[in-house]
Design a protein around this nucleic acid. Structure first.
Length: 424
RNA sequence: GUGGGUGUCGCCUAGCGGUCAAAGGCGCCAGGUUGUGGCCCUGGAGAUCGGGGGUUCAAAUCCCCUCACCCACCCCA
């Protein structure tokens, strides 16, 4: 065991993982493009206030999960714990309100949360996400949900369960929380310790408590859906009907709440079908919601927005469980095998010429035996070995040996090598 | 932050107080007559048994501490 390791809860992305990651990234780009979304990349660090003001000082993310540090200029920076606040900051900073609305953006990158690592939970986690900013209509919610759903589908995860809810606006939520507290107050001493704590900090959380899931008071708790304003209810109904039209299946789940304060109205989650999931309690693969007040919290004008984030490690985990195969990366076309005194220089020039012709070339290691180099070339999966020794160098030719297909080794002039490899 | 499990070469594993100055498989390196791969054969390198302390005549094997990883809670993607 090396004495230096990757930081706790963070891991290396190795060459053998590359195919699956590339599949997820390419699929995200492709599908987001089909929906008219453009890539945005923000810094992985931000002024702490970007998150403190938007997620809520009381939220777990801000109060205990953020990596915060002073930079040399004395400013307080934070490693981004999530993507939405940063994207909204960029929207404001670059005056995107003066572009055609809504502005549709997607992103792909690492987030950081100082949490205790666990199955499907890491301190550096990767997320892909999309934001649709500037459209208050239910159509925008339905669109981002459909986008998230389409990405999952294209990745072979068409059995994830979509659960949606409306948590109303801040005012309706405040009223509902009071109603909830009234409801739970008489049962306080029979609820779990965690729920007693939640009663003070975030009563909504009692509803999706694991410990108290079977508690009568939880089962009989008033539903937030009965406390929505007329506008909230209509918004939610329209979102549902649009999803029906789009053929996106969902369950209405009045219990789901989201961890961040800025959500309003529509919220949703994608989960694996098996309730007591494989990834333990960390089963949510993706989630999202509407955040109409967020940009105001950042100091901008009232601006509606809605979006989602998908956990890439959890997506990969689910793909692996379902045996989804990512397309394998193409192996190199040619492995050069330099021999003797003049071979290495000739092989170098050959590699340049082949690459200029668009062929992928793996350079051989001069000094190793022909046998050793052929073994290496074979293991690399290269289609051809290109043997260049003193004799070939002197005559301006190369021996091409098919490695993956049947056929005998043959000699071609260096200038004809690319065409020969292409099978012309 | 709380609880439980695990920690032997790059990977997987054997060993569970003395014959272990640690064994095997995979992988890696080199050979198997002069410049020819995949299979096979032979050889080689590579581990102070996570780290520290203790018990003992003797510890990879027992005890304590610590670190890391895994799992669960909290919370979240």
């Amino acid at each position: 065991m090396a004495d230096l390791q990757a930081p706790r809860g963070m891991s290396d992305l190795l060459p053998e993982d590359e195919a699956a990651w590339r599949f997820v990234r390419d699929t995200t780009e492709r599908v987001a493009g089909l929906f008219g979304y453009s890539l945005i990349a923000t810094p992985i660090v931000e002024d702490v206030r970007v998150f403190a003001r938007t997620s809520g000082d009381e939220s777990d993310i801000v109060s205990k999960e953020m990596y915060v540090f002073q930079d040399r200029g004395g400013g307080e920076l934070a490693l981004r714990p999530e993507g939405t606040a940063s994207v909204c900051r960029a929207y404001l900073e670059h005056g995107m309100a003066s572009r055609p609305q809504p502005v549709r953006l997607y992103y792909f990158g690492p987030m950081f949360r100082y949490d205790r690592p666990q199955a499907g939970r890491y301190r550096q986690l990767w997320q892909l996400g999309a934001e649709c900013i500037g459209d208050p209509s239910p159509a925008a919610d339905a669109e981002v949900i459909e986008l998230q759903h389409a990405i999952f589908r294209e990745l072979g995860l068409d059995d994830l369960v979509l659960r949606i809810n409306s948590i109303g606006t801040a005012e309706t939520r405040r009223n509902y929380v009071e109603r909830l507290q009234e409801h739970f107050h008489p049962h306080l001493d029979t609820l779990s310790r965690d729920s007693q704590r939640r009663f003070e900090t975030n009563p909504l959380r009692i509803l999706d408590s694991k410990e108290d899931a079977a508690h009568l008071a939880v089962l009989e708790a008033p539903s937030i859906l009965d406390h929505l304003s007329a506008e909230d209810a209509e918004h939610f109904a329209t979102v549902r009907s649009l999803l029906d039209t789009a053929g996106v299946a969902y369950e209405v789940a009045p219990r789901i709440v989201r961890g961040l304060d800025y959500y309003a109205r529509t919220v949703w989650e994608f989960e694996p079908p098996s309730e007591d999931g494989e990834a333990g309690g960390q089963s949510t693969v993706g989630a999202g919601g509407r955040y109409d007040g967020l940009i105001e919290l950042l100091g901008g004008p009232p601006t509606p927005g809605t979006g989602f984030a998908t956990g890439i490690e959890r997506t990969l985990l689910n793909m692996r469980e379902r045996g989804v195969e990512a397309p394998v990366a193409a192996a190199v076309d040619v492995a050069t095998i330099p021999l003797g005194e003049q071979g290495p220089a000739a092989a170098l020039r050959l590699a340049q010429a082949l690459r200029a012709a668009g062929l992928a070339v793996r350079a051989g290691a001069p000094g190793r035996s022909l046998r050793a180099q052929l073994r290496g070339a074979n293991a690399s999966g290269a289609r051809y070995a290109a043997i260049v020794g003193d004799d070939e160098a002197a005559r301006g030719v190369v021996q091409l040996k098919p490695l993956t297909a049947d056929g005998d080794q043959f000699e071609v002039a260096v200038g004809d090598a690319a065409a020969a490899v292409r099978g012309e």
